[in-house]
Write a protein that binds this DNA or RNA. Structure first.
Length: 880
DNA sequence: CTACTCACG
DNA sequence: ACGTACGTGAGTAGT
């Protein structure tokens, strides 16, 4: 049996762990611990799987490397590590030391080189080698005995990709050592390896696959095709050779290493246990405890009740508890049971049956919520129909809290929260119940149900305190208490209210569309000479670009792009193309809107869509089942559909939308005096921008200038890039660059502000809104150029979009509260990001308008006014 | 289940 | 980890 060593790329795995695990994680001292936690999880997982005899972790040391000396632009790969991650490096080393794991470092060399050297030495010693890194560069080390393992986080779970030499060849089509030469040609922004200008990934791979080495490529450079590549190669020879040296991992660096010190001894030492305790890494603590044999882990016990006396007793005790967790279990409007947690040993599931009725349980749950102490739930909005409470002090939603702490997660379910905040691994709902309904699960697997529901209530209760502490530490407690929690009730009210839709009119609209669709279908088949599925981009691509030989603009992964912007640019005069575009428009309206909306019309003639609070990265809400935030408005025909959204008898719609809220927020947040002044002066912001940027009097701005200024304004809000602007305006990159330059010269404060966002984002790892909402931007420290660029745009956009979302949420809460407190019959029914729709009683219209204006204007005090446009109408079509 | 397309702010 | 504007959700095809 061969012996085995695991070699770990310390920084790279820490980095991965940092962004993979909940970012706000700290211990009571305020030390950030998430990366250490993630790192140790990966470490232990690898040790479990590989069962190695030896292990060593390599770290970079801050010192110039030979790469810096060769190439002054070389930046190294560990730049831009956020402070919260940086401080975890020594912490990790402490843990490793306590576990008796050898750390290898060498000034002047990167961890890559140490790993390269150690893997070569160990292979020579006859060991199997496993290299663990987040970096694909390591693939050049792969051999028959050296396996590269790359952990990837996908949707919260870590999967590990394994590469032996054969896997590299299979997946990349080159050998590990050839891979170096590919990189020498194409460059690698992740390592700041320049490569040969003009040679991209495809060409680089093709060349090396043909010639097998950089040297061989150059030996035959005169015969390389295409000519463009040949020219690039000839011009970039020095660069290629330099890049080759930069890209090649040093396998003979003078690092000190002793196999004996790498031998794995007792990992779960008392010293390590102490550190785990100090870092409050509870789930890991269990494993270290076992190693110390100090204590056995406790199985959690859950109790089942279906009798009245037992329930009474449980509720009595819960009424006294300082903090409880509740999970209602309901289906189709009927309460099937509830779980209740009010202590480590007091977790119950109460099933509705016999005298223990649903009504009884909801009544008790309501009393618990109103008892004046902390009550934590998951998805409070779902429970509100049963609880029948209004905004209540002390009632909290743990999912919403979790969302604020990290809005990038895909879900905020109990098992995720338990893992992140309690460091507890518990079975998920799907693990326990599968995808069946609660009702049938309660029949067939009661035990699993009890476990599932009890964990949910327990997690809500137990994580509550921690969540609140973290919100406090991150400065988000006011955001949570004053905006997100009250908003739950406003959203619930909107969902409950719904919007009336004229079913018959919708059907007629759909039929009209259908007639036109069928006419177009025939015409399209005639023009193209055959019948095919027009809805299939694949088939359509074949017809347009192969059969009819139209020039194709762009290719997607799977074929030709047939998107509207491409088709419009390509052949606006082609009748077939025009008809296809029209067909697309009509079928979209028919399937998504005419047919799509119809299925959501309820018994009451209204659509009760859902408004989701924990979906977006920026703090916006989202709308589903159906999406009522993307009802057509831009095109005339699509806009027609708004005629079927009508107020009920005796009511009228009042629609209020913020005018240019994001640009006004930009003016405020940047503090640019000219921009602030501009918005004080003019209603027409784009015109004003054009006037100032292009140096023309306000009244002489041409429509073209205004349009350009508008696009630039959009670009600024989206996180400006010359590429994006040039696409948006169909101009060259250089022209776009000039516009941007002129804009920043006009508003220097904006430039300073946006640069500051990127800088602070890089430093902190997240950006914030005016109200303290955070968005982590892990892409900012990515070594990949494209990803980092994306991160920079996100850092510029999120504070603006997010602040607008904050302000709208404040306004919504204000409007909803006032309509109710002033005893009006009018109700808020929709929010579309910068727009609110109220179904107003006809005799209340003036009051409603006043409320909307006051609450929206007054939602934030900015250095520029917040303008609100008001419209009324007897359908949503009319309110424009 | 993913890719593409397109509706909105 | 996308050959780029930011943020969403839904329907259809095709694996």
């Amino acid at each position: 049996m061969r012996e085995k060593i695991v070699l770990i790329d310390g920084h790279s795995i820490l980095n991965r762990a940092y962004y993979g695990v909940n970012m706000g994680m700290t211990n009571f001292e305020g030390l950030h611990t998430n990366a250490v936690y993630g790192f140790l999880n990966i470490l232990l997982k690898i040790i479990d799987e590989e069962q190695p005899q030896y292990i060593t972790v390599a770290f970079d040391v801050k010192a110039p490397t030979f790469r810096h000396e060769m190439y002054e632009a070389y930046k190294g790969t560990r730049k831009g590590m956020p402070e919260e991650l940086h401080e975890q490096v020594p912490l990790t080393k402490d843990v490793l030391k306590a576990m008796g794991i050898q750390v290898a470092e060498l000034p002047g060399y990167e961890a890559d080189d140490i790993l390269g050297t150690l893997s070569a030495r160990c292979e020579k010693e006859g060991l199997d080698v496993v290299v663990v890194s987040g970096d694909r560069d390591m693939l050049q080390l792969a051999s028959g005995r050296i396996k590269i393992r790359i952990p990837k986080t996908k949707g919260g779970t870590t999967a590990v990709e394994d590469y032996l030499e054969k896997d590299v060849m299979e997946k990349l089509g080159v050998t590990p050592s050839e891979f170096v030469d590919v990189k020498a040609l194409m460059g690698d922004s992740s390592d700041n390896i320049p490569g040969v200008p003009g040679i991209g990934e495809k060409t680089a791979f093709a060349l090396i696959q043909k010639y097998h080495s950089l040297e061989a490529v150059y030996a035959d450079v005169d015969n390389v095709k295409p000519a463009r590549a040949q020219k690039a190669l000839a011009a970039g020879r020095e660069m290629a050779e330099l890049s080759q040296t930069l890209a090649r991992i040093d396998r003979e660096c003078p690092v000190e290493f002793s196999l004996e010190q790498a031998r794995i001894g007792k990992l779960f030492t008392p010293e390590a246990y102490e550190i785990m305790k100090r870092l409050e890494l509870r789930s890991l603590l269990k494993r270290f405890e076992a190693g110390c044999q100090t204590q056995n882990s406790v199985e959690r016990t859950f109790l089942y009740l279906d009798d009245l006396e037992g329930a009474e007793l449980a509720f009595e005790k819960a009424m006294e508890a300082e903090r409880i967790g509740i999970q209602l279990v309901a289906e189709d409007g009927e309460l099937l049971g509830l779980s209740l947690a009010f202590g480590e040993e007091d977790v119950y599931f109460l099933e509705a049956s016999g005298f223990l009725t649903g009504e009884y349980l909801t009544g008790k749950a309501r009393q618990l919520c109103l008892r004046g102490k902390d009550t934590w739930m998951l998805d409070l909005k779902e429970a509100l129909p049963y609880l029948d409470i209004e905004e209540t002090e002390g009632v909290y939603d743990a999912g919403v809290a979790g969302y604020l702490l990290n809005p990038l997660k895909s879900a905020y379910v109990y098992d995720d929260l338990a893992r992140e905040y309690l460091e507890l691994t518990v079975p998920s709902r799907t693990d326990l119940l599968g995808k069946v309904s609660f009702r049938s699960a309660l029949q067939d697997k009661k035990e699993s149900c009890i476990t599932c529901f009890c964990y949910s209530a327990y997690t809500a209760m137990a994580s509550g305190e921690i969540l609140l502490r973290k919100l406090r530490e991150t400065g988000m407690e006011p955001l949570f208490r004053e905006i997100e929690m009250p908003l739950i009730y406003s959203l619930y009210h909107m969902e409950k209210e719904g919007i009336q839709v004229e079913k018959e009119a919708l059907r007629v609209y759909g039929e009209t569309l259908q007639v036109q669709i069928e006419r177009l279908e025939i015409e399209i088949y005639e023009l193209s000479g055959e019948t095919f599925n027009i809805n299939s981009p694949k088939q359509l691509g074949v017809i347009l670009f192969e059969k009819l030989k139209l020039p194709y603009g762009k290719k997607t992964k799977t074929g030709y792009s047939t998107s509207a912007d491409i088709l419009e640019k390509l052949a606006p005069e082609q009748p077939l193309v025009a008809k296809i575009l029209e067909y697309r428009q009509l079928t979209k309206l028919k399937s998504t809107y005419a047919d799509g909306l119809a299925v959501y019309i309820g018994e009451d003639g209204r659509i009760h869509g859902k408004f989701n609070q924990t979906i977006t990265a920026t703090g916006r809400i989202s709308s589903t089942e159906p999406n009522l935030q993307n009802i057509p408005v831009r095109m005339a025909l699509g806009r027609e559909i708004r005629k079927v959204f009508v107020p009920k008898e005796g009511y009228v719609f009042v629609d209020a939308d913020y005018s240019q809220i994001e640009l006004r927020i930009l003016a405020h947040m940047s503090g640019d005096s000219r921009l602030i002044e501009a918005y004080h002066q003019a209603e027409d912001i784009h015109r004003m921008t054009a006037s100032q940027v292009f140096h023309v009097p306000f009244d002489e701005v041409t429509p073209l200038q205004r349009g350009n200024a508008k696009a630039v304004n959009f670009g600024i809000v989206y996180g400006i890039s010359a590429f994006g602007l040039s696409e948006g305006l169909s101009i060259t990159r250089q022209e776009a660059l000039d516009y941007i330059k002129q804009y920043f010269e006009t508003y220097p404060g904006v430039k300073i502000f946006l640069d500051g966002l990127v800088d602070s984002g890089k430093e902190k790892g997240y950006v914030t809104t005016l109200f303290g909402r955070r968005r982590p931007v892990p892409e900012l420290s990515s070594s990949n150029f494209m990803q980092r660029n994306f991160g920079e745009r996100v850092a510029m956009n999120s504070p603006i979009q997010g602040t607008a979302a904050d302000i709208m949420k404040i306004a919504m809460i204000g409007v909803d509260r006032r309509l109710r407190r002033e005893k009006l019959r009018s109700r808020l029914i929709l929010q579309i990001h910068d727009e609110l729709l109220v179904e107003a009683a006809e005799d209340e219209v003036e009051q409603v308008k006043r409320i909307l204006k006051e609450e929206m204007d007054g939602a934030a005090e900015l250095s520029v006014p917040l303008e609100v446009d008001l419209n009324t109408g007897y359908s949503w079509f009319e309110t424009k």
